[in-house]
Design a protein around this nucleic acid. Structure first.
Lengths: 338, 338
DNA sequence: TCCATGTGAGACAACGTTGTCTCGCTTTCG
DNA sequence: CGAAAGCGAGACAACGTTGTCTCACATGGA
């Protein structure tokens, strides 16, 4: 008959009334302040149980000015296993710090990245881990100056000095191409993602370094860039194989490209060698077991998350760049055409 | 020299002081209330830009009592592609409702599920999507009664009446086993996850129905349950193949089990047929292309998220159970031993 | 000219919680 | 026995924002 029509959550003041104590005492009980008479503690706990009271964390963190116990993760696409692995390990580290994780996808759109960054700042997350989509991060500077902690992951930031954790793309790609060269290949097709992406640039550079050091002249017709989908990679492979002087091996710049290329080779029953950057779960089970440049994705996420919590914990040392090593996982190659 | 030592975020009161207006006027400008003189609007916006002001969303939603624009997703493990696909599509639907997503992993632990559920309620999320780990959800009832919206995904709740979205596990498994029977197999090994999991129970039931309807007597030695890892699945396959009267085909209850079983068959070069529940990206590229029971995981997540936002939007109709159909994707089987 | 009407903007309180201060009671010691 | 000290618990204000109310001033009609 009263204002019971919409169910309203009880507040500490309701609990206080029910237990016959002041709101502050309820607050003390909730926060385990020891200086409350055990008998009152019991009364209060009883009332809390009866009413189903649950503290409003938002009000609590507003008043206390402490952490919101939330961090944000800005990534390309949660459906991509690379990103979801990172999200999982970041969430795990966050949980060990009693912190929740808000994950947002930018779909590799720089504008969306900026928008979501600012929105997460409005929510007063305690910190942010960012896998950059855009190439200019000076927009983060005002927030950084006002105390927002952030760590860049997989790609370094530009326009701001901040922590980052990246993998050794160039050296990894170089090692991969060297492996193909050592197997006797001289015509090696290289397929890379958009060069707007830092990792794609670095990997292409590494591949070129290997070729140059082996004295193999650089052939433009054997390099394709801006390949973003497996289908595109398949077309590139088809295209190069149909050319007059086709490659005998392929170096593919990421797992999506590798899968697309593999599919095309599989369809054709072609025996060109294939070596890709990024490992993936089923690589060993492929029709042709795949040699890949692998690295510890979980370690990548873990280091970024731990760096972030160091910062949140008050670490104010000079920003650092942490580099994760890659390793070549040999699982066999197609034989070079002799 | 003043309290500038720790960078403090400006508040609307700082903006008001800078612009020479009242805090309420700043609030009006922020919220696009039209009844403010354009000249003042400009002043306020200028001050906002200068100070780098950004509204505190937590304070805003506390005061206004409106939504927190956050929903929670409670799943088993974000690193599992099934769950990350769901998380991605839920995040997408959420974003279209200007809402953020907090994802937590239970690691299939019922106690952790309950704990995280309650913590998310404390955060005053607007709603929750839950993939149950536990089998009793009566603990959610007090929260539901106080207005917490929730939708159960992949597995129905027990102990509470609430919306759910599930797939047709029994019928799918039945169709899968029928497919193996139609190919002439009579000795079919069935490997299932822990029967504490609803989907595993349902799928096993479906498999048994198919066997029973075909008049194949049920052989306990051909059924393994409680298999949670690919390694376990591999051991089951090895074990059954090494038995005196080995199966000629396997029905595997989920994608982890399928991968483990496939690996073992691959190692042995064994030609037993394999048909699994759950599709996975590379199934078509496997050494033996895999026939699977597939379903639209994205649709599963999408329906749950849309149902949740219906509820948040005020829909108070009777709770519904939405069922997603499965389909058999034939990609070939090993031939039965003749 | 005077009063009714309308409009823009400020004062104040409130959301649910916690930090600070105070106060009364008990304990202890000179 | 009185005063200092200690301790438990309440009153009050504040976190940053927005809802409600009020008021000053401008406008228009009688």
């Amino acid at each position: 008959m009263d204002t019971q029509d919409r169910p309203r959550r009880p507040t500490i003041s309701d609990v206080a009334a029910a237990a016959g104590v002041s709101v502050k005492t309820v607050s003390r009980v909730i926060n385990n302040v020891p200086s409350v008479r055990p008998e009152l503690v019991e009364q209060v706990l009883a009332s809390i149980g009866e009413l189903g009271f649950r503290r409003n964390d938002m009000a609590s963190s507003l008043r206390s000015g402490r952490r919101t116990a939330t961090i944000g993760l800005i990534i390309g696409d949660l459906a991509n296993p690379f990103y979801s692995t990172i999200a999982a390990v970041v969430a795990k580290v966050a949980r060990s710090h009693d912190t929740y994780l808000i994950t947002v996808s930018t779909e590799e759109d720089a504008e969306l990245e900026q928008q979501q960054f600012l929105e997460l700042c409005q929510r007063r997350v305690d910190g942010l881990i960012i896998v950059p989509a855009g190439s200019d991060h000076s927009y983060t500077r005002p927030e950084a100056e006002m105390g927002m902690r952030m760590v860049f992951l997989d790609r370094p930031p530009s326009g701001i000095l901040a922590d980052s954790v990246v993998i050794d793309n160039a050296l990894g790609a170089q090692a991969g191409v060297e492996h193909l060269l050592a197997a006797g290949h001289r015509r090696i097709g290289v397929i890379a993602d958009s060069l707007a992406i830092y990792t794609a640039r670095e990997r292409l550079n590494g591949a070129r370094t290997a070729l140059a050091q082996a004295g193999v002249s650089y052939d433009d017709s054997l390099v394709r860039v801006g390949v973003t989908h497996p289908e595109g990679a398949a077309r590139c492979v088809a295209d190069m194989l149909d050319s007059p002087d086709p490659p005998t091996a392929f170096f593919t710049g990421n797992n999506r490209i590798t899968v697309g290329a593999l599919g095309e080779l599989h369809r054709r029953g072609h025996d060109a060698a294939l070596l890709g950057f990024d490992d993936f779960e089923l690589a060993a089970l492929m029709p042709r077991p795949l040699t890949v440049i692998a690295y510890d994705v979980q370690e990548l996420g873990r280091r970024a998350a731990e760096r972030l919590f160091d910062r949140i914990g008050g670490d104010s040392s000079w920003p650092s760049e942490s580099v994760i090593n890659t390793r070549l996982v040999p699982r066999g190659l197609g034989l070079p055409r002799s």
